[in-house]
Amino acid sequence: MYAISMFHTALALLLAPLLLGIINQTKAFFAGRDGIPLLQLYYDLWKLLHKGAVYSRTTSWIFRASPVVGLAAVLVGLTLVPWGGQAALLSFEGDLILLVYLLGTMRFFTVLGALDTGSSFEGMGASREVQFSALAEPALLLALAVIVQVSGSISLSTMYAALTPALWLESGPAMIIVAAAILLIYLTENARIPVDDPNTHLELTMIHEVMVLDYSGPDLAFILYAAALKLWILGSLLVGLLLPVHGQGWFNTILFFVGMLFLAVVTGVIEASMARLRLQRVPQLLVCAGALAVLAIVLMQR
């Protein structure tokens, strides 16, 4: 039981950067380019880990701590998320709130690190990140609340274990709406395209990328790896909802992995086919995610 959960966690640690490679490959395919190599993030991480870090004299220990705290938070978060129809490595009552707050801690320290550099540019990115996540976090909790309502449990592993094909037949519309809400949150939290463009490094529109401009060497590697793991965590929340399969076995592991790959391709297609929203429209998108979650709660209520 524990062995397979540990295997799944190890799989996430190993394969999370691959998802970003697949997203980039999909985008390159749609643009008719060769694109970045599939394993580029692995090469980058390897290269960065062998470099030294440069710190500005205006920064304090907060700036140095923030990548480490971010990676630690997201690693703990990873052990809470059920994957492949199996319980997570750790599970207890109320761990969904811990997961949301671990992601919040990671964001908080990234923001603090950005403010610590004293650059007005990074301050702007930090302000936007906080504004959008203040709207995305309640939406995520509301969406998880729907699953809580369905399963009658407040532990992620038992919540996801209660999702069955029969439930999908019984209340399909509500489940589709929850999935749509989680997809919107997944795109926002991972700074993907309708909200933020991961490719622009020096534009006034960027949000997440601007906050990590001053990091170099191993610190940047930690940040990139933590971002990949965050994509994996939120992705597995969505895939777990859409693939209500349970039980042990290689089949489920492979099915879930194909689901994650498919999600990465879908993300790439969204990025290739949509333009980034205007900054003023982003809060509306997030309110929309919250509205969808509320709609699902009301549908489940009757």
Binding site: G290, A291, V294, L295, V298
Partner: peptide, 12 residues
Amino acid sequence: TWSLLIGTLALP
């Protein structure tokens, strides 16, 4: 944004 919020609250 506010009309979307009000519209959502109209549902309950």
